[in-house]
Design a protein around this nucleic acid. Structure first.
Lengths: 94, 94
DNA sequence: TAAACCAGTTTATGTTATAAACCAAATGTT
DNA sequence: AACATTTGGTTTATAACATAAACTGGTTTA
């Protein structure tokens, strides 16, 4: 009846991050922080978790002298997100 | 952009319970346990939380000599669920 | 009358989400 | 130049949470 909800995605901030990353080639830390209205600490932790699960890839580079952390979604991440959304529908279709 | 997700509903088991209760007049403990495939302990705790928030009402009665715990959703609960679903759509519509 | 069962509740524990504190480098201010 | 502030994060501490395990109180069965 009810399908399992991937705990990694069933989290407000991680879901928001994935929701952004699924519709964009890549997004940097500052952009994600703005869009999700999160604190840097929280975002940093959640990006780590998503990247540890290979749902996203995090790249660090420089723009001039400033560091830039860029994220993009992986195939695994995209599939997990799609599955999460499908499974979620078993809860909210009434 | 992303709407807040009611933490009380953003929980797999509580969401499943509310999902059932929104489409039925009432449901008893044993039925909810079966449908959600949860343990009695977990279900008991989560029903308490939903009822503490006035999202559901829990009634205890007897059927013969056996106790029966029956639950039904409240107006508050119904509204919270509808809002949760609407807010969730800001995350999954892509 | 003891064992097993039913319908739950309470308690203990590991996990999680989150904020607070921190850090290093760059930039602005006097 | 020196000092403060901002930027772009990471690490750490903590409170809340989800969950399972243990327990309870009554009931049926052997």
């Amino acid at each position: 009846m009810f399908k399992e909800l991937d705990p990694l995605l069933h989290s407000q901030l991680r879901l928001a991050v994935m929701s952004i990353l699924i519709s964009v080639e890549s997004a940097d830390f500052v952009f994600l922080k703005q869009q999700t209205d999160s604190t840097a600490g929280n975002l940093s932790v959640q990006l780590d978790k998503l990247s540890a699960a290979d749902y996203i890839v995090v790249k660090k580079s420089f723009v001039g002298k400033k560091t830039r952390t860029t994220c993009h979604i992986t195939k695994t991440g995209r599939e997990a997100f799609e599955r999460y959304v499908e499974n979620l529908k078993t809860y909210i279709q009434h």
